[in-house]
């Protein structure tokens, strides 16, 4: 449910960028890590609701989820962590260090420029 707060912040940043570009935003791509706990459907629904009546009305959002990464304690390999099968794919050890999670980032906005 914290997606509502994320959507609000996103709306403010995109509206500001739209004023700068003097163009209508039609789509945006954001990226996030696993620990941001973002549910796409909830975020898109919240965004759609608060965007009504603003420059962002009707925009589509695309969310790119970045994998959690870990470093194996034995072979030091960095790998994408799958929580269901949490072990190093190279040496099979389940002893690893979790690397910092990807932050929540507005990567790109697509504008309709005439």
């Amino acid at each position: 449910m914290h997606e509502a707060a994320v959507a609000q912040d996103l709306l403010e940043v995109i509206c500001k960028e739209a004023r700068k570009q003097e163009a209508r935003p039609v789509a945006a791509r954001i990226s996030c890590g696993q620990l941001n706990a973002i549910n796409d459907e909830v975020l898109c629904f919240a965004f759609e609701a608060i965007a009504r009546g603003t420059a962002c009305e009707g925009m589509t959002l695309q969310v790119e989820h970045k994998s959690m990464q870990a470093r194996c304690s034995r072979c030091k390999d960095v790998f994408d962590l799958n929580l269901a099968e949490a072990r190093c794919p190279s040496c099979g050890v389940d002893d690893f260090e979790l690397l910092p999670d990807a932050p929540l980032v507005l990567e790109e906005i697509e504008f309709d420029k005439e």
Binding site: V6, V13, Q21, I30, V105, L106, E107, E110, F111, D112
Partner: peptide, 15 residues
Amino acid sequence: MEKVNVGKRILSANE
């Protein structure tokens, strides 16, 4: 259509 790279952190006001 034109794509603009933004690369801005969300929830930065909270941070």
